[in-house]
Lab assay of single mutants.
Amino acid sequence: MDETGKELVLALYDYQEKSPREVTMKKGDILTLLNSTNKDWWKVEVNDRQGFVPAAYVKKL
């Protein structure tokens, strides 16, 4: 969790967005987890953008 109590995830792999609903991340990025109710796609925030990334590409910290 960060200082505001939000849950964080670590990008395990690079991911290039394939639609406007997704976000690009690089391996090693720390992202804010917004929603993990879907087992396949998690909603995150990175670089002031919100979108989805494959759940298998990130790990909760």
Rank of each mutant, 00 (worst) to 15 (best):
G28V: 01
K39T: 10
D2G: 14
K39M: 10
K27S: 07
F52N: 03
A11V: 09
N38K: 07
L61I: 14
D40W: 15
W42V: 06
W41I: 03
Q16N: 14
L61T: 06
D29V: 05
T37M: 10
K39C: 10
E17T: 08
M1N: 13
D2W: 14
Q50F: 07
L12P: 00
D40S: 11
V53E: 01
V9E: 00
G28M: 03
A56D: 08
V23L: 15
E45V: 09
L8V: 08
A55N: 02
E22I: 04
D14E: 05
V46T: 15
T37V: 09
K60H: 08
D40P: 02
K59P: 01
L33I: 05
K18N: 10
M1V: 14
E22K: 04
G5K: 14
K59E: 10
D29R: 03
F52K: 02
L34D: 01
N38P: 04
E7Q: 15
Q50L: 06
I30K: 05
N47D: 14
V58H: 01
N35A: 08
E17G: 15
K39W: 08
L34I: 14
Q50S: 11
E22H: 06
P20M: 09
L12H: 03
D14C: 06
D48F: 10
E45L: 10
T37I: 08
V46H: 15
V9C: 14
W41S: 02
M1D: 13
K60G: 05
W42Q: 01
N35F: 06
Y57G: 05
L12Q: 04
K6G: 10
E45F: 07
E7T: 14
E3Y: 09
V23C: 09
A56K: 15
T24H: 04
Q16P: 06
Y15K: 01
G28I: 01
E17K: 13
S19W: 06
P54R: 04
L31K: 01
S36E: 13
L10N: 03
N38H: 11
F52L: 08
G28Y: 05
L33R: 01
S19Y: 06
L10Q: 10
D40R: 13
G51R: 02
E22L: 05
E22R: 04
N47E: 12
D48N: 14
F52D: 04
V23G: 02
V53A: 02
T37S: 14
D2I: 14
T4I: 12
D2Q: 14
A56Q: 11
E17R: 14
D14M: 03
L31C: 10
R21S: 13
A56C: 14
N35M: 08
I30A: 03
E45K: 10
D29N: 07
E3F: 10
L12K: 05
S36Y: 07
L10R: 09
V58I: 08
L33G: 00
D2R: 09
T24G: 08
Q50E: 09
V58R: 00
V53D: 01
Y15G: 01
S36G: 11
R49H: 07
D29L: 05
M25R: 00
G5S: 13
N47M: 12
V58N: 00
L31S: 02
V23Y: 04
R21Q: 12
K18V: 08
V9T: 02
T32L: 14
K43N: 06
Q50D: 06
T32D: 04
S36D: 15
G5W: 11
M25S: 00
W41T: 02
E22G: 13
Q16Y: 14
G5P: 15
W41G: 00
D40F: 15
E45A: 11
W42P: 00
L34T: 04
M1F: 13
P54Y: 03
T4M: 12
I30F: 06
L33V: 06
K27M: 08
W41A: 02
P20H: 10
K43L: 15
N38D: 15
V9S: 02
Y15D: 00
Y13M: 11
R21V: 11
N35S: 12
L33D: 00
A56Y: 09
P54C: 04
L8F: 15
Y15A: 01
L33W: 01
P20S: 11
M25E: 00
E45Y: 07
T37D: 15
T37H: 11
Q50V: 15
K43T: 07
N38Q: 09
L33H: 00
F52T: 03
L61S: 04
K60I: 12
D2M: 14
K26S: 08
L31G: 11
K60E: 05
L31H: 03
T24L: 02
L31V: 06
T32Q: 11
K43C: 14
A55R: 12
D40G: 08
V53Y: 00
L61V: 10
T32A: 10
K39E: 10
K18Q: 14
K26N: 08
A56M: 12
Y15F: 07
T24F: 04
T37L: 08
T24C: 06
V53F: 00
L8I: 08
K59L: 13
K60D: 04
Y57N: 05
K18Y: 05
P54N: 02
A56R: 15
L34N: 02
V53S: 01
K26D: 03
Q16L: 12
K26F: 11
Q16D: 13
L12E: 04
L33P: 00
E7S: 11
